[in-house]
């Protein structure tokens, strides 16, 4: 912009031409700089999402583009007991797994925030579940939960706590708890490490001030640590809820929705219906039905993420 002012426009004393003006116009340039990123977003996010929503209004099947049929798919899935079960499963799975992940993650973060020997190594170890590919860890859990060779059953039998093997994935509630356990195992590192990063931003002198003010360990957590951590908790829990709600790989590998649909989530049901069952329109309707739930979760966090009054203004130091 300063270029335009400095460059003597000798041949055009009447003022910069339209093109000259355009070349230095912030909005015009900004538009072009943004275009590549926007093109990627449209191609890989907006288009698939739009296509999915469009397909949910058609009777498309594999090999058949299908015709527009309005809300028929939605009317059908809403009345479907299997779909209702999948919605319940998804909500239950998301709620229980998120609460447990939060509690364990926060506890772990606070533990790791203390001065421990081999601190860096322990922190790295905590991250392992997060970096192992989900399918690999799912296969590991598949063995851990195996009806015959389960290491858990084996150990408990050795200790004499149980007489027969536990049917982890064959019994409806056992299966639900087992997949939630696997999800928690996988999700805790993300929450723990993020909250740990948040904890490390809390100035140690605040704890010293609280000590002098007479706060116990619990009061320090309740009145100092937790309130300061709430913004980061809102962010990390939003992500956690979104990831958990749309979970697919773990369930696909561990139970594939069984037994009798008791661990079927909306994501796996959508895949099974559309890709394996070939009923693309119906499957698209199931996945589109996840959008309101996800929007709801985002709205809650959006309000949670609003800058609190105390965060406004400049830093403390």
């Amino acid at each position: 912009m300063s270029d335009a002012a400095i460059t003597p426009s000798g041949h055009d004393r009447a003022g910069p031409s339209f093109w000259e003006g355009l070349k230095t116009n912030r909005n015009f340039l900004g538009f072009w700089f943004m275009l590549p990123a926007a093109a990627f977003l449209v191609l890989f996010l907006v288009y698939p999402l739009g296509l999915g929503v469009w397909l949910s209004f058609t009777d498309s099947k594999i090999g058949n583009p299908g015709d527009f049929i309005g809300l028929e798919n939605y009317e059908w899935i809403i009345g479907d007991a299997k779909f209702q079960l999948a919605v319940f499963n998804t909500l239950f799975y998301t709620f229980v797994a998120s609460v447990v992940k939060f509690a364990v993650g926060l506890y772990l973060a606070i533990l790791l925030n203390n001065h421990l020997p081999f601190k860096a190594m322990i922190r790295a170890v905590v991250l392992i579940p997060f970096i192992v590919p989900t399918v690999l860890s799912a296969i590991a859990f598949w063995w851990i939960f195996d009806p015959q060779f389960s290491v858990i059953s084996w150990a408990l039998r050795k200790w004499g706590w149980i007489s027969g093997n536990i049917d982890f994935l064959g019994d409806p509630w056992n299966a639900r708890i087992s997949v939630i356990f696997a999800n928690v195992w996988r999700g805790v590192p993300f929450i723990a490490i993020t909250l740990l990063a948040g904890l490390q931003t809390v100035s140690p002198s605040l704890y010293e001030a609280a000590t002098l003010d007479g706060a116990s360990k619990w009061q320090m957590f309740r009145y100092v640590t937790y309130p300061i951590l709430t913004p980061i908790i809102a962010v990390v829990m939003t992500f956690s809820v979104l990831f958990t709600f749309t979970d697919f790989q773990l369930i696909k590998v561990l139970t594939n929705g069984g037994p009798a649909g008791t661990t079927e989530l909306m994501a796996t049901m959508s895949y099974n219906t559309a890709i394996l069952g070939g009923r693309i329109g119906e499957g698209a309707a199931i996945s589109t039905a996840m959008i309101p739930f996800l929007l709801g979760a985002i709205m809650i966090s959006w309000f949670g993420l609003q800058k609190r009054k105390w965060q406004q203004g400049s830093d403390n130091d």
Partner: peptide
């Protein structure tokens, strides 16, 4: 005793 810290150590959320 009561102490005043170099960086004040005020609780930012209060």
């Amino acid at each position: 005793i009561a102490m005043v810290f170099q960086n004040y150590a005020l609780y930012p959320h209060m």
